[in-house]
Simulated assay, not measured.
Amino acid sequence: MLLRCLTLILVALALPAAVTAQDRTPSHCIALADATPGIAHVIPASLPDVAPETVHLHYIAHASFLIRSHGGLNMVTDYTGFTGTLPMIPDVVTMNHAHDSHWTPFPDPAIPHALPGWGAFGEGIDHELDLGEVLIRNVSTDIRSQFSEVEPEGNSIFVFEMAGLCIGHLGHLHHEPTEAQYAALGRIDVLMAPVDGGYTLPLPVMMQVIRRLKSSIVIPMHWFSGYALDAFLLGMSDEFQVVELESANLSVSIDRLPSRPTIMVLNPSYINVAR
Rank of each mutant, 00 (worst) to 15 (best):
A14C: 04
A14D: 10
V19T: 04
V19N: 04
T25W: 07
P26Y: 09
P26F: 03
D34G: 07
I39Q: 10
A40H: 05
H41K: 15
H41C: 12
S46F: 09
L47G: 02
V50W: 02
V50A: 04
A51R: 13
A51H: 15
H56A: 01
A61P: 06
A63G: 14
S64L: 00
L66C: 01
H70F: 12
F82C: 13
F82A: 14
T83W: 00
T83L: 12
T85G: 02
V92Q: 03
V92N: 02
M95G: 00
N96Y: 04
H97N: 10
D100G: 12
F106G: 02
P107A: 01
D108V: 15
A110I: 04
I111N: 01
H113F: 09
A114I: 11
L115V: 05
P116K: 05
W118K: 04
G119T: 02
G122Y: 00
E123W: 11
H127E: 15
L129Y: 09
E133N: 06
R137A: 05
R137S: 13
R137H: 13
N138V: 09
T141R: 13
I143Q: 03
R144V: 11
S145A: 14
E149T: 06
E161T: 10
C166F: 06
L173D: 02
H174D: 02
E176D: 11
T178N: 13
Q181F: 09
Y182N: 03
A184C: 03
R187G: 03
R187P: 05
D189Q: 12
L191D: 04
L191M: 12
P194D: 03
P194I: 06
V195I: 08
G198C: 03
P202R: 15
P204M: 10
V205H: 13
M206N: 05
M206Q: 05
Q208K: 14
V209P: 07
I210V: 11
R212P: 06
S216L: 01
V218T: 05
V218C: 07
I219R: 01
I219A: 04
H222G: 11
H222C: 12
H222E: 08
F224K: 05
S225W: 04
G226T: 11
Y227L: 06
Y227N: 13
A228R: 00
L229P: 03
D230P: 01
L234A: 15
M236L: 06
M236K: 05
F240Q: 04
E244P: 06
E246A: 13
S247P: 08
S247V: 12
A248Y: 13
L250T: 08
L250F: 07
P261A: 03
V265N: 01
V265H: 00
N267L: 10
P268K: 00
Y270W: 10
R275N: 01
R275Y: 05
